[in-house]
Design a protein around this nucleic acid. Structure first.
Lengths: 216, 216
DNA sequence: GTAAAAATACCGGAATACCAGTAGATCAAA
DNA sequence: TTTGATCTACTGGTATTCCGGTATTTTTAC
């Protein structure tokens, strides 16, 4: 892989100083003409884009950040500066997370356990206009589990509210009293919830909801 | 802080090559007389201890490793080589995880978002024979939440089995048939489960169990 | 302004879960 | 070997959920 002749700018947004150090070291070794610029929060990077007018060629974004999640940050970056290639650099190995990043305009996804070579290879692919996934990310995308394909039911506000109260062990009567509605209404919501989750009892509905982070 | 005159050996066990690079860079800058040695699995490090007879002065261990968890690895390291100071270097910010590491003989706990200075300071403290916690780890230890203090009920094999089936939406009759016992027995287990979790319905029990990773 | 979605509400009845208390059988550890 | 924990099982009764179908009102969105 020949080094790029024109100077490229790589930004890194990660709140782990040690990771910042490691990436900088790896990138300096791999590229002759590169400048790296580090940020520990999403806000700092967005400010930089606005002030510098254009931003970096590449940005590596951690999913977990102190002020904003990497998925939303990715969308904002692409809105402000469409030319910037966003690569996720994260520990999250859920298929749904990778999907969300790509949906929001990311050019690729790197698991944090990627080797230095892999990181550099992915950056090159991204610069080349391709979608760059690290080895493990590719594997995750290749074999979706049954759970990945299961479409989560869209719950209404009221349904979520009632689901939470049911999960707290409250009876329909107690919930009705608390929400100032008829117990019969609560019963209807329960039934709709079970239908949406495609389960036979609220116990199972709570389990599925917990698995998918809808509750708690 | 004056640099140590005698040569110290720092081992790092982490399956993230970038973190390895970063730590190496930081340690090289901070210490004149230091040699670092990296491992990406717990097994590799244990082999190294056995072969080298004694191991390193300090070892930084990630909690999440491919072959063994950092807590068990810590215990094994201390058994093989009591003189080695173990420092956890992890993303896990649960109070219970920090407690478990300390219980198993760790000399300290560093969150991965620690600064380079903090890492060096903690290593020095550990070398000095003290317990070294990073700023955030100290904060976590200082204010335990209600959930941290809540003692999880110890469930028997059978209880776990029945809890899982209940969470799948099965009725007592169905569970009884599956396990070849009386439905009345299943009812008794249900009641004991609710009592242990201190909740009023199995729905709530499932929620608490899911929150604490008892259920898949 | 109108159609779709959501929230509300009802009936009757069957199924199931929850409650309180008790107790024999089994098995592992002290 | 005896004690404690676990698993098993029962009686009898009450409370609650779940099922089916239906329908009005309020919000939301195009």
């Amino acid at each position: 892989m020949s080094a790029d002749k024109k100077k490229i700018t790589i930004a890194i947004v990660d709140d782990h100083p040690i990771v910042l150090e490691g990436l900088q070291k790896v990138l300096m070794q791999a590229y002759d003409y590169v400048s790296t610029i580090c940020f520990s929060t999403g806000g700092e990077f967005l400010n930089y884009i606005k002030k510098s007018g254009g931003g970096s060629d590449i940005v590596l974004i951690d999913i977990t950040l102190p002020d904003i999640n990497g998925i939303d940050l990715c969308r904002e970056v692409k809105t402000l500066s469409a030319a910037t290639c966003v690569l996720a650099f994260s520990n999250h190995n859920e298929r749904s997370t990778i999907m969300k990043m790509l949906q929001n305009g990311a050019s690729g996804y790197l698991l944090k356990n990627s080797s230095a070579d892999e990181v550099v290879a992915c950056i090159n692919e991204a610069l080349d206009g391709q979608i760059a996934l690290s080895r493990e990310a590719r594997e995750i995308m290749a074999k979706p589990s049954a759970r990945d394909l299961q479409v989560l039911p869209a719950l209404t506000k009221r349904e979520k509210e009632i689901l939470k109260l049911v999960a707290d062990g409250k009876t329909s009567a107690a919930i009705a009293a608390q929400l100032h509605v008829s117990p019969l209404t609560v019963e209807t919501h329960r039934r709709n919830l079970m239908q949406k989750f495609n389960v036979k009892s609220m116990t199972a509905a709570v389990k599925v909801a917990m698995e998918n982070g809808i509750l708690g």
